[in-house]
Simulated assay, not measured.
Amino acid sequence: LRCNLVSIDKDNTLVSFNGQGLSAENMAEAAKACDEFWQGIEFMHLSMYRNLLILDKDRRILDNCVISPPHESMGKNVDLLLGELKQQSLLLKHFIECTAKRLERFNHDDIRYMLYPWGPSERKTLPGFQALHGLKGAAICEAEIVRGIAKGLHLTAPKIAGATADIDTDIAAKATATLNMLKEHDFVLTHFNGADEAAHRYDYQSKAEFISAIDEEFLEKIINNIQEPLRIVICGDHVTSSINGKHNKNAVPVVAAQINTAAIPVKINNYQDILTFLMRASDMRG
């Protein structure tokens, strides 16, 4: 399961899904306080408020248990949100309650911290990207879930100094890394997580500024520093509202472009069009 460090108020209302009020150092300390050998559970700290729980049982229980994602549940009572999970799994109930006690030293001003498990999944073996598409691929990303998918697909995924998976990520460094990967790879995915994080914090201004910075510091650098034919698709995996901080099912804008080529412009109407545009065999590198 994914496992967020969250904050709640004196009424057990979920106040934040991302350890709001704690510094990065505090969150690392909080994770360390919860990191021990738990019988039946492996706790794995990723970064900031993000952690994983790996269970060696309770799979069938979790299949039938509805757990609301914390970023979709702000303002709701955490006892109600996790009630079914704790009822179905005594193992996770024990973990949640024990770690809450360990986090008490971080509490302040009627704000308390706890670990919130959600998003159950299971280990899968993914097919290799090159085997699927006949193309050599790379991924420039820092968000753990994206790096995990990239590694599962056997994409080259270099670590980038200054990449943070938030709005303070080094956009120029990502542009440089993307250009370097394009020299030897047919396909490069560059992922930016900051707009999503800013929207979850209701920070529409920072979200807008971050997207503008990607235009200026990333796209402009790519376009000005590559001479080969290149296909570019810009899109998001979902919409995140800066008003309520939640993901929603609205349509995601998609921009497709071809540079350094006289190829006929294409229309993108659906996912299959994106796949065809990017992966069709030709002498273009994309």
Results as ranks from 00 to 15, higher is better:
His200Lys: 08
Lys93Tyr: 07
Ala251Glu: 13
Gly128Asp: 14
Thr164Pro: 02
Arg2Glu: 10
Ile41Gln: 13
Asn12Ala: 04
His108Lys: 14
Asn51Phe: 06
Glu72Lys: 11
His247Arg: 05
Phe106Ala: 00
Ala31Gln: 12
Ser47Arg: 15
Phe95Ala: 02
Lys174Thr: 02
Asn51Cys: 03
Leu22Ser: 09
Thr125Cys: 03
Glu197Thr: 03
Ala195Ile: 00
Glu36Met: 14
Ser212Trp: 13
Leu182Asn: 08
Pro117Met: 00
Cys3Phe: 04
Leu126Thr: 05
Ser121Met: 11
Ile232Pro: 11
His154Glu: 07
Glu97His: 12
Arg60Val: 08
Lys10Gly: 06
Ile232Asn: 10
Met44Ala: 04
Met181Gly: 05
Lys207Met: 01
Trp38Asn: 02
Ser73His: 09
Gly21Val: 00
Asn180Gly: 07
Phe43Gln: 12
Leu90Tyr: 12
Asp166Tyr: 02
Ser121Cys: 09
Asp273Leu: 02
Ala173Leu: 01
Thr13Asp: 13
Arg60Ala: 11
Ala175Thr: 02
Val239Tyr: 15
Phe129Ile: 02
Leu46Gln: 08
Asp110Gln: 12
Ser47Asn: 12
Arg105Glu: 08
Asn107Pro: 07
Val254Ala: 11
Met279Phe: 15
Lys249Tyr: 14
Asn250Val: 09
His133Pro: 02
Arg280Leu: 07
Ala138Phe: 11
Thr99Ala: 01
Lys76Thr: 06
Leu62Gln: 06
Tyr113Val: 00
Thr125Lys: 11
His108Ala: 11
Lys93Gln: 05
Val233Asn: 00
His108Met: 05
Phe43Thr: 04
Leu275Arg: 09
Ala163Arg: 08
Phe95Asp: 03
Ile140Ser: 09
Lys159Pro: 03
Gln88Arg: 15
Asn4Ser: 07
Val255His: 05
Leu135Pro: 00
Tyr49Ala: 10
Lys124Phe: 13
Ile274Ser: 04
Leu179Gln: 05
Asn269His: 04
Lys86Ser: 09
Asp58Asn: 08
Asp109Pro: 10
Phe43Cys: 04
Asn4Ala: 03
Leu275Lys: 12
Asn26Val: 01
Ala150Ser: 10
Leu275His: 08
Ser242Tyr: 03
Val254Ile: 15
Gln88Asp: 07
Asp215Ala: 02
Thr261Ile: 00
Glu42Gln: 15
Asn64Lys: 11
His191Cys: 03
Leu153Gln: 09
Ile268Tyr: 15
Glu228Cys: 06
Pro265Trp: 01
Glu25Thr: 14
Ala139Gln: 10
Arg280Met: 07
Thr99Trp: 13
Gly128Met: 08
Ser282Tyr: 03
Phe95Cys: 01
Tyr202Lys: 11
Ile214Asp: 03
Pro158Val: 03
Leu92Thr: 02
Asn77Thr: 02
Gln87Trp: 03
Lys124Ala: 13
Ala263Ile: 00
His133Asn: 15
Gly245His: 00
Ile268Ser: 10
Ser89Gly: 11
Cys3Thr: 06
Asn270Cys: 14
Leu53Thr: 04
Leu103Asp: 02
Asp166Thr: 05
His71Met: 09
Ala173Lys: 09
Ala177Gly: 08
Asp203Lys: 11
Cys98Arg: 13
Thr178Ile: 11
Ile234Pro: 13
His94Trp: 00
Gly148His: 10
Lys57Asp: 12
Leu219Val: 14
Trp38Pro: 06
Ile274Asn: 06
Thr261Gly: 00
Val252Lys: 05
Arg285Ile: 12
Lys151Tyr: 06
Glu42Phe: 12
His200Leu: 00
Ile111His: 11
Lys221His: 10
